[in-house]
C-alpha cells in the first residue's frame, strides 16, 4: 500500500505512432497541490485522463489511493473528482438536477446528498443560479457548478484540468482559494495548467512536462534555482527546455 495519494510510474501513452506521454513518473501526497505544467501538447490532459480511468495506459502503472487504475477504474473514479478542461455540464439540466444525478451515480444516500448539496451551495455561492439550466449560466457560474460536481462525493483526490482557462480574475481567485481549502482538508490535488504564474501562486510542487516527459520537478523555488536562479518560473521553464534541446 502506497502512502502517496497518486503514484505514476514510467507511464507511456501512444496514439498510433505518436507518443503523447513518454515515460512519466511522479507522486502526489495527501494534503499537497501538485502542478503539472507544460505547453499545449505536452501530454497534461492525456495524463489526467489516464488517472481518471478514461484512457488506458500503453505501458506503465498508475495508482490512485493505492488502486491500480488499469485494474479497477471504477473504484478509482469513486475516489477522485475530475474537473475537465471544458466545464462538461449537461446543458439541459439545472445544477440541482446535475448534482442529484451524480450523487446517485456515486451511491450517496438521499440525506447525505441533501446535506452535501446544501454545503456546496453555500461554499460555492451557487444559490442564485442553482435551479437554472446550465446552458444559460455564465462561464464563472458554470465553473463553480462544475467544481461542485467534481467534489460532490468528497473525493480523496482532486484532478483539475486547466480549471482557470477562460475565467476572469475574480473567478480565478475564487477557484484558487477553493483549491487551497481542499488541500488544507487533506485532499491531494493534481492541477494542470499552462499559466506558469498561476502555478507558482498555488502549487506546493510542480512537474514541468515537455513532449510527454518530466523535464524537472520540485517546489517553484527549487525549479527556479535549478534553472540558474531564473527570475520567474516561466524563465526557468524556457531555460530548461533550451538545455534539453542542447543535450539532445
Amino acid at each position: 500500500m502506497s502512502a502517496s495519494a497518486v503514484s505514476v510510474e514510467s507511464l507511456v501513452k501512444s496514439f498510433g505512432a505518436t507518443a503523447a506521454v513518454a515515460g512519466l513518473s511522479f507522486t502526489v501526497a495527501p494534503g499537497e497541490i501538485y502542478g503539472l505544467l507544460g505547453p499545449n501538447g505536452a501530454g497534461k490532459t492525456t495524463t489526467l485522463r489516464i488517472l481518471a480511468g478514461i484512457l488506458v495506459p500503453t505501458t506503465g502503472s498508475v495508482r490512485v489511493a493505492g488502486i491500480d487504475v488499469a485494474q479497477d477504474p471504477l473504484s478509482v473514479r469513486r475516489r477522485l473528482g475530475f474537473l475537465t478542461n471544458t466545464t462538461g455540464l449537461y446543458p439541459r439540466l439545472s445544477g440541482r438536477e446535475l448534482l442529484g444525478y451524480f450523487a446517485r451515480l456515486h451511491g450517496m444516500s438521499r440525506d447525505a446528498t441533501a446535506a452535501r448539496i446544501d454545503a456546496l451551495v453555500a461554499a460555492l455561492a451557487l444559490a442564485p443560479f442553482f435551479d437554472r439550466r446550465c446552458e444559460s449560466l455564465s462561464t464563472g457560474e458554470r465553473q463553480r457548478t462544475s467544481i461542485a460536481r467534481a467534489v460532490l462525493h468528497d473525493p480523496e483526490v482532486l484532478i483539475l484540468d486547466e480549471p482557470t482557462a477562460g475565467l476572469d480574475v475574480l473567478a480565478s481567485r475564487f477557484l484558487r482559494d477553493f483549491v487551497r481549502a481542499e488541500r488544507d482538508r487533506g485532499k491531494a490535488v493534481l492541477f494542470s495548467t499552462h499559466y506558469l504564474a498561476e502555478a507558482e501562486l498555488l502549487c506546493d510542487r510542480i512537474g514541468l512536462l515537455h513532449r510527454g516527459r518530466l523535464l524537472a520537478e520540485g517546489t517553484p523555488a527549487a525549479l527556479r534555482a535549478a534553472a540558474g536562479d531564473a527570475p520567474s518560473l516561466e524563465e526557468a521553464f524556457l531555460r530548461l527546455v533550451a538545455g534539453e534541446a542542447a543535450d539532445a
Binding site: A52, L74, F82, L105
Partner: peptide
C-alpha cells in the same frame, strides 16, 4: 469526458 469519468 464528464460522463466517462463517472463511476459507472
Amino acid at each position: 469526458e464528464t460522463t466517462l469519468s463517472a463511476p459507472i
